[in-house]
Nucleic acid binder design. Structure first.
Lengths: 193, 193
DNA sequence: CGCTAACGGTACGATAGCGTTTCGATGGAG
DNA sequence: CTCCATCGAAACGCTATCGTACCGTTAGCG
């Protein structure tokens, strides 16, 4: 997160500067939340001028959209030959991510923002769909191999597999025990054979 | 929610004034989010003086805690004699609540706030636990009646039943079709017989 | 009733962010 | 090496909120 892209006193331009500002935006959102997400704060954090920020993004909302969009990292769908193993692997990686700041605080701020700004809502939908893809792929493969029944609904199954962990962290605020992943996988996948 | 406790121009005191300010706090949080949740805004909305607000709550965080605490309304656990019917009834009521503002926007702001303030985090946990109780009760009764297997885990089952709807609304930002409730109930409950 | 604590309204200086402008410095392509 | 688009820094007037203080008013208890 704390990227010193350049040596002391030196300053990057063009795309380098853009990346630096986006990283700073995420850091601010993480630490101060949506309430503290201001152009001034991002400029300070990035060691940038407010003018440079306004040159690229007319509003804090536009900046937030680009910053969150930059957080997406493609996650390859595993292919061990077993649906259970594949799903367990994906969910374990997800739980790890959920336990490590800054991701959860970032997501919490984004959930609040998306509830009020249509542009952010759409972006959040897109990002979520991209994140769902590996799980969907794995489930489809499992169905094709006959590991899961032909009437399996991959969309609903993905919801059932993913949502409990969101819920635990953001709503119930309870720790996620390690064995919860296999428990959920068993409860959701077993009846589908 | 919108309580006009008094006629025009008249002003309530003591607990009446307190209720009026809490209602105003929720209205502000709903409309402006956590970022716009200020003492000034709440005072304006309540038709109250800032001094009166500061007299009761030293910080916006303390006010937010009391305001959210006031949103809780006990929900009696249904008892139709059938676990499936009971659960369906509770989840249907919940989905209805989830689709009607101000509740979801309120909850979104609160999720963000709770991620940063330990006092709010604890309150959120308490509120969530109280909201879970009816579902837990219904599941326990179903297990006692033998409708559900003796090794049923009510806590995990509650997570599995509730979380998909949170997820749909706050994360995936997709509509919740009416048939999703019975679908989820069937998928989660049927294997437990 | 009458009295008093609680209230609304207002003003205060202080701080912070807004959105814009100006100016001097410097990177990096040609 | 040259040159100019891009950048950082700073200052601008403006508005909003902060937290506190001091009024005049009044609700509601005794």
């Amino acid at each position: 997160m704390a990227d010193d892209l350049d040596g002391a006193g030196r300053v990057s331009r063009g795309d380098g500067a853009r990346q630096r500002m986006l990283a700073a935006a995420l850091a601010v959102l993480d630490e101060a939340g949506l309430a503290g997400f201001t152009m001034e704060a991002v400029a300070r954090r990035a060691g940038a001028s407010k003018a440079t920020l306004y040159r690229r993004w007319p509003t804090t909302g536009a900046l937030l959209v680009d910053a969150m969009d930059a957080t997406y990292r493609p996650f390859p769908a595993p292919d061990t030959g077993s649906v259970t193993k594949d799903v367990t692997q994906i969910l374990t990686a997800f739980v790890t991510l959920l336990e490590r700041t800054p991701f959860p605080r970032l997501l919490a701020a984004f959930i609040d923002a998306a509830e009020r700004d249509p542009a952010l809502s759409k972006l959040h939908t897109d990002l979520t769909n991209r994140r769902r893809e590996p799980l969907l792929t794995v489930l489809e493969r499992g169905r094709a191999r006959g590991e899961l029944g032909p009437d399996t609904d991959p969309e609903l199954t993905t919801d059932l597999l993913t949502s409990p962990f969101f819920y635990r962290h953001f709503v119930a605020h309870r720790p996620i025990p390690r064995r919860m992943v296999p428990d959920v996988v068993r409860r959701v996948l077993e009846p589908l054979r």
